[in-house]
Protein backbone atom coordinates (compact mmCIF):
# COMPACT_ATOMS: atom_id res chain seq x y z
CA UNK A 1 0.00 0.00 0.00
CA UNK A 2 1.35 3.35 -0.98
CA UNK A 3 1.73 6.17 1.49
CA UNK A 4 -1.06 8.09 -0.18
CA UNK A 5 -3.49 5.21 0.24
CA UNK A 6 -2.51 4.90 3.86
CA UNK A 7 -3.18 8.58 4.31
CA UNK A 8 -6.68 8.29 2.86
CA UNK A 9 -7.40 5.25 5.00
CA UNK A 10 -6.40 7.21 8.06
CA UNK A 11 -8.73 10.05 7.09
CA UNK A 12 -11.57 7.58 6.53
CA UNK A 13 -11.03 6.03 9.95
CA UNK A 14 -10.95 9.47 11.53
CA UNK A 15 -14.21 10.35 9.78
CA UNK A 16 -15.78 7.14 11.03
CA UNK A 17 -15.03 7.91 14.66
CA UNK A 18 -15.59 11.63 14.49
CA UNK A 19 -18.82 13.08 15.80
CA UNK A 20 -20.70 14.18 12.67
CA UNK A 21 -23.13 16.22 14.72
CA UNK A 22 -20.41 18.42 16.13
CA UNK A 23 -19.39 19.55 12.68
CA UNK A 24 -22.85 20.28 11.29
CA UNK A 25 -24.69 21.77 14.29
CA UNK A 26 -26.47 24.95 13.34
CA UNK A 27 -25.48 28.13 15.13
CA UNK A 28 -28.34 29.86 16.88
CA UNK A 29 -27.99 32.78 19.26
CA UNK A 30 -30.50 31.66 21.85
CA UNK A 31 -30.06 32.83 25.40
CA UNK A 32 -30.95 30.73 28.41
CA UNK A 33 -31.29 31.53 32.07
CA UNK A 34 -29.47 28.42 33.25
CA UNK A 35 -27.03 25.92 31.76
CA UNK A 36 -29.57 23.22 32.61
CA UNK A 37 -32.03 24.89 30.18
CA UNK A 38 -29.31 25.03 27.56
CA UNK A 39 -28.55 21.34 27.99
CA UNK A 40 -32.25 20.49 27.68
CA UNK A 41 -32.43 22.54 24.50
CA UNK A 42 -29.45 20.71 23.07
CA UNK A 43 -30.80 17.32 24.03
CA UNK A 44 -34.25 18.01 22.57
CA UNK A 45 -32.98 19.40 19.31
CA UNK A 46 -30.63 16.44 19.01
CA UNK A 47 -33.39 13.91 19.63
CA UNK A 48 -36.07 15.47 17.46
CA UNK A 49 -36.04 14.88 13.75
CA UNK A 50 -36.40 17.55 11.09
CA UNK A 51 -39.68 16.91 9.21
CA UNK A 52 -38.37 18.56 6.05
CA UNK A 53 -34.82 17.33 5.57
CA UNK A 54 -35.56 13.85 6.78
CA UNK A 55 -32.70 11.94 8.39
CA UNK A 56 -31.21 14.94 10.12
CA UNK A 57 -32.09 16.07 13.59
CA UNK A 58 -33.29 19.57 14.38
CA UNK A 59 -29.89 20.71 15.58
CA UNK A 60 -28.19 19.62 12.36
CA UNK A 61 -30.73 20.90 9.87
CA UNK A 62 -30.60 24.14 7.91
CA UNK A 63 -34.24 23.70 6.88
CA UNK A 64 -36.65 26.54 7.54
CA UNK A 65 -39.03 24.47 9.61
CA UNK A 66 -36.13 23.13 11.73
CA UNK A 67 -35.07 26.71 12.44
CA UNK A 68 -38.64 27.55 13.49
CA UNK A 69 -38.93 24.44 15.65
CA UNK A 70 -35.64 25.21 17.42
CA UNK A 71 -37.01 28.68 18.15
CA UNK A 72 -40.19 27.14 19.52
CA UNK A 73 -38.25 24.71 21.74
CA UNK A 74 -36.24 27.65 23.08
CA UNK A 75 -39.41 29.63 23.76
CA UNK A 76 -41.08 26.76 25.56
CA UNK A 77 -38.01 25.99 27.70
CA UNK A 78 -37.68 29.63 28.75
CA UNK A 79 -41.43 29.75 29.48
CA UNK A 80 -40.91 26.85 31.89
CA UNK A 81 -42.52 23.98 29.99
CA UNK A 82 -41.25 20.48 30.75
CA UNK A 83 -39.63 18.15 28.20
CA UNK A 84 -42.83 16.08 28.23
CA UNK A 85 -44.89 19.18 27.36
CA UNK A 86 -42.54 20.02 24.50
CA UNK A 87 -42.64 16.47 23.15
CA UNK A 88 -46.43 16.57 23.33
CA UNK A 89 -46.42 19.86 21.37
CA UNK A 90 -44.28 18.26 18.66
CA UNK A 91 -46.32 15.07 18.55
CA UNK A 92 -49.61 16.96 18.14
CA UNK A 93 -48.25 18.67 15.04
CA UNK A 94 -45.81 16.27 13.43
CA UNK A 95 -46.69 12.85 14.85
CA UNK A 96 -44.36 9.97 15.61
CA UNK A 97 -42.14 10.96 12.72
CA UNK A 98 -40.58 13.77 14.73
CA UNK A 99 -39.09 11.37 17.28
CA UNK A 100 -35.93 9.47 16.48
CA UNK A 101 -36.88 7.38 19.49
CA UNK A 102 -40.59 6.68 19.00
CA UNK A 103 -42.71 6.98 22.11
CA UNK A 104 -44.26 3.84 23.50
CA UNK A 105 -47.89 3.70 22.37
CA UNK A 106 -50.26 1.04 21.09
CA UNK A 107 -49.25 1.90 17.49
CA UNK A 108 -45.52 1.70 18.22
CA UNK A 109 -45.61 -1.39 20.48
CA UNK A 110 -44.64 -3.62 17.55
CA UNK A 111 -41.53 -1.51 16.95
CA UNK A 112 -40.44 -1.89 20.54
CA UNK A 113 -41.28 -5.56 21.07
CA UNK A 114 -40.47 -7.07 17.67
CA UNK A 115 -36.70 -7.33 18.34
CA UNK A 116 -37.29 -9.17 21.65
CA UNK A 117 -39.89 -11.37 20.00
CA UNK A 118 -37.51 -12.29 17.17
CA UNK A 119 -34.73 -12.98 19.67
CA UNK A 120 -36.99 -15.33 21.66
CA UNK A 121 -38.15 -17.02 18.45
CA UNK A 122 -34.52 -17.51 17.48
CA UNK A 123 -33.70 -19.03 20.86
CA UNK A 124 -36.76 -21.30 20.69
CA UNK A 125 -35.80 -22.43 17.17
CA UNK A 126 -32.22 -23.07 18.25
CA UNK A 127 -33.39 -25.03 21.29
CA UNK A 128 -35.66 -27.25 19.18
CA UNK A 129 -32.87 -27.96 16.71
CA UNK A 130 -30.53 -28.78 19.59
CA UNK A 131 -33.09 -31.09 21.22
CA UNK A 132 -33.65 -32.93 17.94
CA UNK A 133 -29.96 -33.43 17.24
CA UNK A 134 -29.39 -34.66 20.78
CA UNK A 135 -32.24 -37.12 20.48
CA UNK A 136 -30.98 -38.51 17.19
CA UNK A 137 -27.46 -38.88 18.58
CA UNK A 138 -28.82 -40.77 21.60
CA UNK A 139 -30.81 -43.08 19.37
CA UNK A 140 -28.03 -43.78 16.92
CA UNK A 141 -25.26 -44.46 19.41
CA UNK A 142 -26.77 -47.25 21.48
CA UNK A 143 -28.26 -50.42 20.01
CA UNK A 144 -30.60 -52.59 21.98
CA UNK A 145 -30.13 -56.38 22.26
CA UNK A 146 -32.15 -57.35 19.19
CA UNK A 147 -30.42 -54.71 17.05
CA UNK A 148 -27.03 -56.02 18.23
CA UNK A 149 -28.01 -59.60 17.31
CA UNK A 150 -29.10 -58.46 13.84
CA UNK A 151 -25.87 -56.57 13.36
CA UNK A 152 -23.83 -59.60 14.33
CA UNK A 153 -25.88 -61.83 11.99
CA UNK A 154 -25.31 -59.42 9.14
CA UNK A 155 -21.59 -59.26 9.81
CA UNK A 156 -21.42 -63.07 10.05
CA UNK A 157 -23.31 -63.61 6.81
CA UNK A 158 -20.88 -61.33 4.99
CA UNK A 159 -17.87 -63.42 5.90
Amino acid sequence: MSKLNLFFCLILVLLMFGNPRASVAQVDTFEFQTTEQQQRFRKLSDELRCPMCQNTNLSGSTGGVAQDLRREIHRMIVEGLTDVDIEEFMFDRYGDFIFYKPRFRAETAVLWFAPILFLLLGFAGGYIVWLKSKKSVDESESLDASQLNRLNDLLDSKQ
Binding site: Q67, L69, E72, R93, Y94
Partner: peptide
Protein backbone atom coordinates in the same frame (compact mmCIF):
# COMPACT_ATOMS: atom_id res chain seq x y z
CA UNK B 1 -42.32 33.63 11.29
CA UNK B 2 -43.66 30.22 10.28
CA UNK B 3 -45.41 29.95 13.67
CA UNK B 4 -48.86 29.34 12.17
CA UNK B 5 -47.27 26.78 9.86
CA UNK B 6 -46.04 24.83 12.89
CA UNK B 7 -49.58 24.69 14.29
CA UNK B 8 -50.71 23.29 10.95
CA UNK B 9 -47.88 20.75 10.92
CA UNK B 10 -46.46 22.28 7.75
CA UNK B 11 -42.93 21.28 6.84
CA UNK B 12 -42.44 23.16 3.61
Amino acid sequence: SGRFGIDLGVYG
